[in-house]
Amino acid sequence: MSSQPPPLIPRHIAIIMDGNGRWAARRSLPRAAGHREGVRAVRRTIEASIDHGVRWLTLFAFSSENWRRPVDEVTDLTFLLRHYLRSELKELAEAGVRLHVIGERDRFGPALDQELADAEARTAGNERLNLVIALSYGARAEIVAAARRIALEARAGALDPAALDEEGFTAHLATSGMPDPDLVIRTSGEQRLSNFLLWQAAYAELIFDDTLWPDFGPANLAAAIAEYARRDRRFGARPAPVAAR
């Protein structure tokens, strides 16, 4: 019987799914083909996260800056999102996945907004994996919106600014009630957060994988988790002194 301790599994993994367009370009395919292949990578990653015992998985699916892309690409991404909800929701629900959506989802229109709300309600009782989809999301806008809500509460006399602390501020964010990510992965070799979970990722471990998102799979996730387990997370504290022998 092995005496090795069990691997350290991050409770919450957040992923910046990058590289769909480059994946398609390298194959002389339209960008839409890269996005469609990226959906398959989402499916693989959800399954692998469940297998590893990850409890929270946040995927950066559409940033607030993505609205600047050509209209046809935004339309294709919106279609893929609606198709994913309709084709995968039953399987997600049966697998014990609970869906959460953060971001300015109303920008996608009332019909899709309602479909997202229905999907959240349908999976609300599931506990195996919390899947958070960031749609039309930007961390700076999220922080500004939280500050605005706090200011309004203070003006109404419902909040004492002197008593506000980090926990109180966090409660006004879109991720209220969710644990901060332990591990943030970005694919495609880019090394930046791109306005993703800036407050929440303050102490997250960062891993940058050169793999383009459509090629990301269980082996990539396992390698990231293994690297995470090797790191010494001190949260700003000094390491304990090593006793002299």
Rank of each mutant, 00 (worst) to 15 (best):
A111T: 14
I16N: 04
W199V: 06
A244V: 13
F169H: 12
S64H: 07
L8A: 15
L131P: 01
W213D: 06
N66A: 12
G189K: 07
E120H: 04
D160I: 11
L89W: 09
T123C: 13
V184Y: 03
D118G: 00
L77H: 01
F216P: 02
R233A: 09
R55G: 11
S63Q: 07
R148N: 05
S176E: 12
P161H: 13
T78R: 13
L131Y: 04
L131I: 10
L173F: 09
A162Q: 06
F196K: 07
R149N: 05
R230F: 01
R122F: 10
R44N: 10
A201W: 06
E120V: 12
A229F: 05
F216E: 01
E227S: 15
A145R: 13
S3Q: 11
P241S: 03
G103Y: 05
E127Q: 15
I185D: 00
A243R: 15
P6Y: 00
G189T: 12
T123L: 11
E127V: 14
R26M: 11
P161N: 11
A204L: 04
D113C: 05
A244W: 00
L57F: 05
A244M: 05
Y203N: 12
I15A: 01
L173E: 08
R44I: 09
L85Y: 03
A154T: 13
S63C: 14
P241N: 08
R27E: 04
A244K: 06
G21C: 01
Q191G: 04
G53D: 05
R230N: 15
L59F: 03
A124W: 02
G157S: 09
A243G: 12
A147W: 00
R82S: 15
L152A: 08
A41G: 15
R149S: 14
V74G: 07
G21T: 02
T175Q: 04
A124T: 10
Q191W: 07
H35R: 07
